[in-house]
């Protein structure tokens, strides 16, 4: 019985294969950990995360203290009574948390979602950006 939110199509009848499938899907109902790229420049930190199937209204970014949490729910278009033939992806939720450091301006975070890729830019406080010190030749 596939629902709209369910990423893994499942059969509706209760045969042994189904039980097995249910057991394995329960075990992996835990959130997926999206792969990320993280890089730093003088201006700030950029984080990119792969969250395929997540639309903007099903994505949430939360900063609590110095923790940044990305969370999203994928939604696929599934037909009624669809049975799974194969499923690499067995959960609909993505979640990952990062600890931020003090020099980052958490109230100026900029996030952008396109084709399932989330890009988050976290600027550094201007006064804490590294200054390049020129060495004067005498």
């Amino acid at each position: 019985m596939a629902t709209q939110q369910d990423i893994t199509p499942r059969a509706g009848n209760g045969d042994s294969t189904q039980e097995r499938r249910d057991r394995s899907s329960r075990a992996s109902e835990a959130a997926l950990r999206p792969p990320v790229d993280i890089c730093e420049t003088d201006q700030g930190i950029t984080l990119c995360a792969d969250m395929p199937g997540v639309s903007r209204d099903r994505l949430s970014l939360q900063v609590t203290g110095n923790m940044l949490m990305l969370e999203g729910t994928a939604q696929l278009e599934l037909a009624d009574q669809m049975q799974a033939l194969h499923a690499d992806v067995r959960s609909t939720t993505y979640r990952r948390t990062f600890a931020l450091s003090n020099e980052l301006e958490t109230d100026k975070i900029d996030a952008h979602l396109k084709d399932g890729v989330l890009t988050v830019r976290i600027p550094k406080r201007a006064e804490l950006r590294p200054r390049h010190i020129e060495v004067q030749a005498s």
Binding site: A2, I7, T8, P9, P52, L76, L78, A79, D80, Q81, M82, Q83, A84, L85, H86, A87, D88, V89
Partner: peptide, 9 residues
């Protein structure tokens, strides 16, 4: 990419 396959009649 990860793949899921579902079938209906």
């Amino acid at each position: 990419p990860a793949v899921n396959v579902g079938t209906t009649p």
